[in-house]
Deep mutational scan, measured.
Amino acid sequence: MEVRTIKVFTTVDNINLHTQVVDMSMTYGQQFGPTYLDGADVTKIKPHNSHEGKTFYVLPNDDTLRVEAFEYYHTTDPSFLGRYMSALNHTKKWKYPQVNGLTSIKWADNNCYLATALLTLQQIELKFNPPALQDAYYRARAGEAANFCALILAYCNKTVGELGDVRETMSYLFQHANLDSCKRVLNVVCKTCGQQQTTLKGVEAVMYMGTLSYEQFKKGVQIPCTCGKQATKYLVQQESPFVMMSAPPAQYELKHGTFTCASEYTGNYQCGHYKHITSKETLYCIDGALLTKSSEYKGPITDVFYKENSYTTTIK
């Protein structure tokens, strides 16, 4: 009895394709271990004539594949690729409408935090270190965002349907971005203890939790000093293409032309909904596939993004 075979390709990165001759009487799992086709788990399936010449994702289970996976995804987590594939199996079914010149995501599976993050990423200057993220990001900007969303979920250790947080998501993504040249110098002034300067680099240099107003941050924000008295913390120097200011959701007025974009969060910790506000020729609110415009805006804002380049204080 002759062994019926077909020729397929296996890959971990969709760049390096490895030619395989597979036995049609055995499952993919018996031949390769966990195997995925377009995100779908085909591990328990036997090869079919229609699979001839198709590319299958496999887990990096030998040295060659491990090197290829690390170079593309910059992670050695053995569960990463499987999590990416199972997320992709959902995100490829989502709709990605162009809204006001940006790629958004039609609401499904509690994905409003991903839509808000995706919209924000198209408006701030950011370059990702893992080629996987950078490639998928370019495709997302062009309207094909399924891979990018699935990668975000995998890097953030999230599953489809789980509630997510924009600030946490951005923080994970910033860790995989090139923020080497970003720098922030802060000064804390206390009447009792004097003053202390701190220099922050990388992710810490672009994120701040405690106030939404970048102007206020430049002037000074009140913080408790270690001595128990009130101290003032203010920005001395900022070198970065953008800054992200966050605070627990509270009524906040966004003035046209003073910011790049913002995240609105309605609801409580267990259950809520994100919308995205962007400042173009007027203010726009993007909620999944829905767009509304207004000249002014007041609502429960939790993150505001500002364009920056270089700032030095005039406070002496």
Rank of each mutant, 00 (worst) to 15 (best):
E264P: 03
Y84R: 04
D13Y: 05
C227Q: 02
D109G: 05
L186V: 15
N14K: 09
P224F: 10
E239D: 12
L102K: 05
Y36A: 03
M170V: 06
T64E: 15
G33T: 04
N110Y: 00
F174C: 01
Y297G: 02
Y252A: 09
K218Q: 05
F174R: 02
Q195I: 13
T103A: 06
A262Q: 03
P224T: 15
Y284L: 15
Y113D: 02
Q98I: 13
F148L: 13
I105M: 03
N61V: 09
P130V: 08
D287P: 00
Y72A: 12
E144W: 06
R141L: 10
Q222A: 10
T35D: 08
L17T: 09
F9Y: 12
K316I: 14
F128R: 03
G161A: 05
S263R: 01
G33Q: 03
C227Y: 02
Q175R: 10
N16A: 08
S240G: 06
Q123Y: 05
V166P: 04
Y84W: 04
Y36F: 11
Q31V: 15
D41N: 10
G143W: 03
S240C: 05
I277E: 00
R4Q: 13
G161P: 02
A40Q: 14
K44H: 14
D109I: 02
L179R: 02
M207F: 08
Q123P: 04
V58M: 09
S79K: 10
E264S: 11
G101L: 04
R139P: 05
Y138P: 08
L173N: 02
V166S: 06
S50H: 11
M24Y: 10
N178H: 09
P97T: 12
L81P: 08
C271W: 12
C227S: 01
F56T: 05
L59K: 08
K54R: 13
C182H: 03
K191S: 13
Q134H: 10
Y72W: 08
K92Y: 05
P34Y: 10
V3R: 14
G299C: 05
S294H: 15
L65G: 07
K307V: 15
K233R: 14
T313S: 14
T198I: 15
C182Y: 06
S213K: 02
A117S: 09
S294F: 13
K46H: 12
G164Y: 00
D287C: 00
Y252H: 12
E281A: 06
E264R: 00
N309P: 14
A136P: 02
L186R: 04
Y113A: 06
S171Y: 15
L118F: 10
L59N: 13
E168K: 09
T10A: 10
D165T: 01
N268Y: 11
G202E: 06
Q30M: 10
T5I: 10
H256P: 15
Y172G: 10
T313L: 14
Q98M: 15
I315Y: 15
Q230W: 14
T302Q: 04
V99R: 10
T27Y: 09
T282F: 08
G202C: 03
C271S: 10
T199I: 13
L121F: 07
A140Q: 03
E168W: 05
V12Q: 08
K158C: 01
L17M: 12
V22T: 09
S86H: 07
K280T: 09
Q134Y: 06
P300A: 13
L88Y: 14
E68T: 06
T103H: 07
Y28V: 04
H18V: 07
T55Q: 09
Q122C: 04
W107N: 04
T199H: 11
R141Q: 09
M26L: 10
F242V: 01
I301W: 00
K127G: 07
C190A: 02
K158G: 02
Q30T: 13
V185H: 02
P78E: 12
D38G: 09
H273A: 00
P34G: 09
A69H: 11
D180R: 08
K158H: 01
H276R: 00
F56C: 07
D13F: 05
S240W: 00
A146I: 02
I105E: 02
A136H: 11
F148S: 03
Y234E: 01
A87K: 06
A145H: 02
E144G: 07
M245E: 02
Y208N: 07
N61Q: 09
G288C: 00
